[in-house]
């Protein structure tokens, strides 16, 4: 049995409270991922973002990470030094964030920022790097890559900025891509486009994808499996195509609580927290 790309066993992320006790943002979760697309869905406080941060080694102080196993393609992430992390991030695991306005440096050109992972992780000539950057900009669907290459992030629209961020993340060829709410800051019309782009690129480059979102119905179309988190724990795991039929009360509510023209005049289903606690 091949080593899974991402192997997480009993991961707990805790933060100290003022009274000395510890609060578990992520409680003892386990998941594994191969070259497949997995969604991690939850609402505020579910711990999904902290899980992503733990995998990237980016849990802020004074948080503590503990796990029986946390490994990326065999590399033990719990034992990594800061230098080890620096070599890993960008080269073997990439992170796409929600808002390109905050993730891209406004004072550096697009070309330079997309090029940076190559400078850090690959040994290429200036010319080769430029070619790769242009190829990547084209692959993410940006019209006229040569012009975009010289632009500053402030000159890009939201959708373009997100494509640039994806380009920068994928250019060094990581094995695993973590996308944390990559479309939340975008207009409705762009969301599907960006998700289609992401899933296509991930398939082309044989990568694993961990897609983090609060929107259950959106991720169902773009992933193979879905893990549902609630208050730090994974409460449901389903094939994405079967989400609509999941018997778990939380998943069911999340799936059906969405407003639409069909629900006009009716009460939307809401969370029955007692039932969820009981089922967990």
């Amino acid at each position: 049995m091949a080593e899974p790309l991402l192997d997480v066993a009993n991961l707990t992320v805790s933060f100290p409270r003022d009274d000395g006790t510890w609060f578990d943002a992520v409680k003892d979760i386990s998941l594994s991922l191969g070259t497949e697309r997995v969604a991690l869905v939850g609402e505020s406080g579910s711990g999904k973002t902290m899980t992503a941060r733990a995998i990237m080694g980016l849990v802020p102080n004074p948080g503590r990470v503990a796990a029986d196993r946390l490994a990326l393609d065999g590399t033990d992430l719990l034992a990594l030094s800061p230098r080890g992390w620096a070599r890993l991030r960008g080269a073997r695991v990439g992170l796409v964030l929600q808002d390109p306005r905050f993730a891209l440096n406004p004072l550096i050109t697009v070309g330079r920022q997309v090029e940076e992972p190559l400078l850090l992780h690959a040994h290429l000539s200036h010319h080769e790097r430029r070619e790769r950057v242009l190829a990547m900009l084209e692959a993410v669907g940006l019209p006229d890559p040569r012009t975009v290459h010289g632009l500053y992030p402030g000159e890009l629209s939201g959708g373009m900025g997100q494509r640039v961020m994806i380009a920068a993340t994928l250019i060094a060829g990581p094995q695993l891509l973590i996308a944390d709410e990559p479309t939340s800051a975008l207009d409705e019309a762009l969301r599907r486009q960006i998700l289609e782009l992401l899933t296509r690129l991930v398939a082309d480059q044989h990568m694993g994808l961990l897609l983090i979102s609060h929107d259950l119905q959106q991720v169902a179309d773009f992933t193979d499996r879905t893990l549902v988190m609630y208050r730090g724990a994974i409460v449901d795991a389903q094939a994405s195509a079967a989400l609509a039929r999941s018997p778990h009360p939380y998943t069911h509510t999340l799936w059906t609580c969405r407003p639409s023209a069909a629900t006009f005049g009716t009460r939307l289903p809401t969370l029955d927290r007692a039932a969820i606690e009981a089922a967990t």
Partner: peptide, 14 residues
């Protein structure tokens, strides 16, 4: 707001 909280608020408003 989260989707589930949105549902509660929309119900409340109506």
């Amino acid at each position: 707001l989260d989707m589930s909280v949105q549902a509660e608020i929309l119900n409340l408003l109506n």
